[in-house]
Every structure is written in C-alpha cells, then in structure tokens.
Design a protein around this nucleic acid. Structure first.
Lengths: 139, 139
DNA sequence: CGGCTTCTGCTAATAATTAGCATCTGCATG
DNA sequence: CATGCAGATGCTAATTATTAGCAGAAGCCG
C-alpha cells in the first residue's frame, strides 16, 4: 500500500482518537490539516487501511459504518439509550472464550474474523433507568 | 400491531423460507400473491415485525440488511468466499456461552441483545481451497 | 355498521457509498 | 537525482438502501 498524506492522516485520526468514527467524522477532522480533502478519498483510504488490517470496520448500529484503529476484532457494547460504544473490560478473554466456543460448535467452519455486538444499557443508563422506575418490574 | 395481508405475507415468507432475506427479496416473493405490493410497504412491515419481535434484522455483510423469522438472536457464520450464511450446529449452547462470557466481562453493562457474526470459510469452501492450494502454507 | 386510527400505495427525498475519469504523485529504479 | 509508471487523488455523477409525506383505503373496537 502506498503511503500518502491523506492515508496517514486518516490513520492518525483514528489511532489518536481511539474512537469509533464514521467516514464523515474522519473527513471533518482530517480537513483541518488537509483542506482540499475529499470525502470519497476518505472512503478509499479507509478501505485501503482495512485491507491492510490497520483499521476495523463495523456496522454497530444504524447509520454509517464505523471505523476503529485496532487490528483485532473484539466485542462491542452498544448502549441502546445513549448510543455510546464501549468495550468489555475483559475483552481479550471474552474474545478468546467466544472464539473457542464458536470453534467448538461450528463444525468445520474456519473462523477468520469475529464480530460481537452486544446491545443493551450501559452502566450509566442503567442507573438512570432505575432512578426513573425504581421498582424492579413496573408492569 | 394491526394484522394486514401485506404483513402476514411478509411474515409467512420469512417463516417458511427460514432464510436470511433482504427487503427486496421479500418483496419479489411477496408480489406473487400481492401484485400491487410496494417495496416501501415491505420495509414498513419488516420494521413492524421487528418491533413485535417476530423477525430479527442483521447487517451481516455489505449490501442490504437481512431479515430472519426467528426471535432469538443467535450466532451467524458468513462465508467470505461464497457468501453463504449458516448457523453453528450448537447455536443455543454457543449463544449461552457467549452471553455468560460477556456478562462476566462487561462490568455493569446490561446486555439485551447479542449479535455474533463469524466471518471465514464454510466447510465447502475450505475444501475447495485445499484442492487449489494443497500445501498447508504456500509462502 | 361506523368511526377512529393505522396502514398502504405512490412519489419523492435522503443517506451512505461507489464509480469514472483526468490529473497528479509516491517510490522503485536507473 | 531524474524518470517512469502504477496507483492515488480530486471532482463529479451515479447507485444503492432506506425513509418521508400525503391522500385514500381498510382493520378493529364498540
């Protein structure tokens, strides 16, 4: 893969932020340094970086695909209320456990990449929910 | 949710095929019985069915979202070569294991829905790959 | 059966991503 | 260090997937 300022910046933005960003967000941030940058170039850069295993693409929720500067695919926790994305504390172990479980139960399928997305409530939103509806089951 | 012929057919198609279908595929099949059916209606029907927990929506690969008539979210195996989608033989156990692993490692996050997608090679394509490149590592 | 609400068909719009093409540029090589 | 060329970029336009708006039709509760 050829190294260009555009790709370097896209990569740097993802690496430094450590966040899950959509193509358009990356674009906005990158334009600070590269004013003429085109959105389509960002898409192509992200594709190149993904093929080079430098970023991971995932479609965690509705809307645009999100990119992250982390080669290993790991579990994601998506909060249905606030939309926040986090990683389980014990990501590596969890991932290993998941892989093992899958390998054992998938009969001949050769797993190369694992995407795990758990949807639910993040600790913060759980707390807020409990404040609003203090009773355990308010049917 | 109001029951209409359109929704009933959409549901029936997903239930009887047991497959992962995109909105457009559902539409094509449903038009046999309901010639005037609109694609946008199919989208709305799928949304209603999803909210009623009668179908599961997942974005397994590129392209359109796929719908399946199965309330419980379960692991998916997506073949990168042939695009085929299958379920691990031991789906329920695997899913249980995954949930347990996640619950243990996600520190206060309340998991409500779990999406697991393993990408790789299905047994068939593994075999075909071995025929083409018989040596284990052809570097 | 009547009425209120919800759904459908139809059309148009939006969002996200990809394609085409001329020009430019990283970089391997002489 | 100049040079050639594969590959990248900017720019524009097209596609794909999905949603929105609105008038008329049709479930379902009484």
């Amino acid at each position: 893969m050829r190294v260009t300022p555009q790709r370097a910046h896209v990569w740097q933005i993802l690496a430094e932020s450590g966040a899950h960003l959509g193509a358009e967000e990356v674009w906005e941030r990158a334009r600070d340094a590269l004013p003429g940058l085109e959105l389509s170039t960002v898409y192509r850069a992200l594709e190149a970086l993904r093929e080079a295993n430098l970023v991971v693409e995932s479609r965690l929720s509705e809307g645009p695909a999100l990119f992250e500067a982390n080669a290993s695919s790991h579990p994601h926790l998506v909060c249905e209320r606030c939309g926040g994305i986090s990683h389980p504390e014990a990501s590596p172990e969890v991932a290993r456990g998941l892989l093992a479980a899958l390998a054992a139960g998938s009969g001949g399928f050769e797993v190369r990449e694992l995407h795990v997305v758990a949807r639910g409530l993040c600790p913060e939103c759980v707390r807020r929910e409990e404040e609003t509806v203090p009773v355990t089951d308010a049917s």
